[in-house]
Amino acid sequence: MSFHEVRFPTDLSFGASGGPERRTEIVTLANGHEVRNAPWAHARRRYDAGMGMRSLDDLEVVIAFFEARAGQLHGFRWKDWTDFKSCPASQVIDPMDQVIATGDGAATSFPLVKNYRSGEQTYIRPIVKPVAGSVRVAVDGTELFAPDFSVDPATGLLTLASAPQEGAEVTAGYAFDVPVRFDTDAITTSVTGFEAGEVPSIPVVEVRI
């Protein structure tokens, strides 16, 4: 898949609408009971970039970005202002934010993940587009610094210089983007409509990496 490591302008994504989408297949039985199945292991996020447009200058920036991505052809980074850090939005990133692995004495590479907990249930989301320079890492509560670890911002793979001891928790804190593409090959608007408050719809959808 062709992906451009460039972020959609954050001042324009700030006003966008959207969020996670799940797919659930539901079959209602003759007795009224339901059988539910989830074919997707992970949610797919959708957004409308048009909701962030406030001026014709904004629209010009989006059209330039759209043309540079060739419409739906190339993916790009998107900042989801409702969920973009390993910690709550009001808090500061900490190397103990997320448990991403437990050492076995041999492995040195671990994918970044974010844990979503509610009650006794936990969903583990892969984080594949961390923001470069934002990642903090700790092993068994002790923060590491370069060159003791490195992170590939294009894949979210964390590599440690030495394998953690068996049973040692590997934790991380980070900011991250969502890999997306435009979900349309056409942007339709008019100057008169935009000046009258008509906002164009510019759908964006998450892509699997």
Rank of each mutant, 00 (worst) to 15 (best):
R136E: 01
W78G: 01
G75M: 06
D48F: 10
A49H: 05
A175N: 10
A106G: 06
K114Y: 00
A186F: 00
D94Y: 07
Q98M: 05
W40M: 02
E21H: 03
N37I: 04
E198M: 14
S150H: 04
I63W: 13
K79Y: 00
D80T: 07
F145G: 04
A154W: 00
R136Q: 11
S17T: 15
V199T: 14
V207S: 11
T171Q: 11
R69H: 10
G156Q: 04
A106S: 10
P130C: 01
P20H: 13
T82V: 06
G193A: 10
V131Q: 14
G119P: 04
E5I: 03
G71L: 04
Q91H: 12
P111K: 11
V207R: 13
A168C: 08
F149I: 02
H42W: 10
H42N: 12
V6E: 15
G156K: 02
E166P: 00
T189K: 08
R117E: 09
M51E: 13
D104S: 08
F3Y: 14
E67K: 14
I187M: 11
L56F: 14
T24R: 15
K79A: 07
A49M: 05
Q72P: 04
S162E: 14
R136G: 03
P39G: 10
E169W: 03
T102R: 07
Y123F: 12
R44N: 09
E60I: 07
P200N: 10
G52M: 09
K129M: 12
R44D: 05
R46A: 13
E143R: 04
F182P: 01
D177C: 11
E169A: 09
R23V: 13
P9V: 06
A196T: 06
F3S: 03
V205R: 15
G19E: 02
A41C: 06
